[in-house]
């Protein structure tokens, strides 16, 4: 399996109390799958994504990605992991405000060993005309597309998305989801998407339901629906 979580726990110390965000999470994800992680707020899905993205350290348990033991990595190794393996897509885009769309992508690939061509990737997301625009001149959907292009250009094998449509309207959100799904299937990338929108289960190959810091259910979807057919 491409991604494996084995009894992963994450606890935070908040003042005098300990907050258990993850209480023993187990799941596997195969390469090239489109995975949706659903759950109410507080269920631990964002924490899970942060651990997977090498942005935080697990308290205990094993996280294996592409054969590598992420839970054991030190800071330098995690930096390399984030650089080479992971592409992150945020709810609020997090583009550099002082760089154009194209430059934002160039920024990300500058440190990569084997990146894709930024201009080509921009074309893939349909923003060739907007390559010289700054984030403030782009709509939310366009900014998110640049953000996705940024992650894709890195040629990372794992794409992690945290509520990518959270700040977008219904129509635009659907387009973004379609784009992510296309990238997953056409480029063979593993996409893990975190959302509280239960309707998105139907488009996934695998659905992981989180509740209270634990995996409540893992479902494999043999015939996922196209996003065009899903309404909410």
């Amino acid at each position: 399996m491409f991604v494996s979580f084995k009894n992963v726990t994450k606890a935070y110390r908040v003042g005098d109390t300990e907050l258990h965000a993850l209480k023993g999470v187990d799941f596997d994800v195969a390469a090239g799958e489109f995975v949706v992680i659903v759950g109410p707020s507080g269920s631990g899905k964002t924490t899970l994504l942060n651990l997977l993205g090498g942005m935080d350290n697990a308290t205990a348990g094993e996280i294996i990605v592409d054969g590598k033991a992420v839970h054991d990595m030190n800071e330098r190794a995690l930096t390399k992991y984030r650089r080479d393996i992971v592409g992150f897509v945020f709810q609020f885009y997090n583009l550099m405000p002082n760089l154009t769309a194209l430059e934002n992508i160039e920024l990300a690939v500058e440190i990569c060993k084997d990146p894709l061509d930024p201009i080509e990737v921009l074309e893939t997301v349909g923003l060739t005309d907007r390559s010289a625009n700054f984030p403030s001149q782009l709509s939310g959907g366009e900014q998110q597309r640049v953000s996705i292009a940024r992650s894709v250009a890195k040629n990372s094998s794992l794409l992690l998305c945290d509520e990518p449509t959270g700040a977008l309207d219904y129509e635009t959100g659907k387009k973004i989801l379609k784009l992510l799904h296309t990238i997953c299937k056409e480029q063979g990338k593993t996409v893990i998407l975190v959302t509280h929108n239960g309707a998105l289960r139907d488009m996934a190959d695998r659905v992981i339901t989180m509740k209270n810091g634990l995996v409540a259910e893992i479902a494999e979807n043999k015939s996922p629906q196209s996003i065009d057919e899903i309404e909410w």
Binding site: R76, T79, R82, F88, N94, M96, L107, I111, R150
Partner: peptide
Amino acid sequence: RREIATLKVLGYGNTE
């Protein structure tokens, strides 16, 4: 702060 955090997520090391 945001840009610094984004750079870290993108895989930039501390020196960079």
